[in-house]
């Protein structure tokens, strides 16, 4: 059931390189900022500590230097640690529409997908080049093409990979899985009826 209004074929805009492997979700949003019952303000907290000096003033963190960025460029295992959706929510509400990196932690990647934010992977050399390019040309527009699995910037075309199910979900507008799965509630009921622990462990015939 494709949902046209939700299809995401490309995302584009200026980039922001955040260098380093294993950048965890506590770094993306420290836990003390999660004491809110909505995600509304999370954009204010993106990389909160990493962006500040001890006295609270802004340092030279990329999120301070590239305030209009839309595409976040990262290295390995980005988003590891906690499953908090606060992390992609913070990035999205700060302004990020898509990510390109060497690799992503799995829960983080799933959380991004559920928000319609592509997480494209690319080889280390491609990422390194892209990071340098963004540093040198902060205004250059990066276009991440989900369908073709390429990123274009200035006049370069870079190969990226988006895993098949994420690609399908984004291109068909079914990254919000609640409505999709709800349409199969009869099947869900059937599965529940077969599960031993929901039925007194009495054996059933399929």
């Amino acid at each position: 059931m494709p949902n046209d209004s939700a299809t995401i074929k490309t995302v584009s805009g200026p980039g922001v390189p955040v260098r380093g492997n294993d950048i965890d979700t506590d770094r993306i949003i420290p836990a003390r900022f999660m004491k809110e019952v909505t995600f509304e303000n999370m954009g204010d907290y993106a990389f909160y500590d990493a962006r500040r000096h001890d006295d609270g003033s802004r340092n030279d963190h990329p999120f301070n230097r590239f305030p209009t960025a839309r595409i976040l460029v990262v290295n390995q295992n980005f988003g590891c640690g906690s499953s908090r959706e606060h992390a992609p929510q913070a990035l999205m509400r700060w302004g990020i529409d898509g990510l390109i990196g060497e690799s992503f932690a799995e829960i983080f990647m799933g959380n991004c997908q559920a928000l319609g934010m592509p997480t494209a992977t690319a080889d280390a050399e491609v990422v390194a080049w892209l990071m340098d390019h963004v540093e040198a040309h902060p205004d250059a527009t990066i276009t991440l093409d989900v369908e073709q699995e390429i990123a274009t910037v200035s006049d370069r075309t870079l190969p990226v990979t988006i895993n098949d199910s994420q690609r399908e979900a984004l291109l068909n507008g079914i990254w919000d899985t609640t409505a999709l799965m709800k349409s199969y509630l009869d099947d869900v009921q059937h599965t529940a009826e077969q599960l031993p622990y929901l039925n007194g462990f009495v054996k059933r015939n399929a």
Binding site: M1, D164, Q166, E168
Partner: peptide, 9 residues
């Protein structure tokens, strides 16, 4: 497993 979704998931 309930079913395979159109995304392949």
């Amino acid at each position: 497993t309930v079913r395979t979704l159109p995304t392949g998931q």
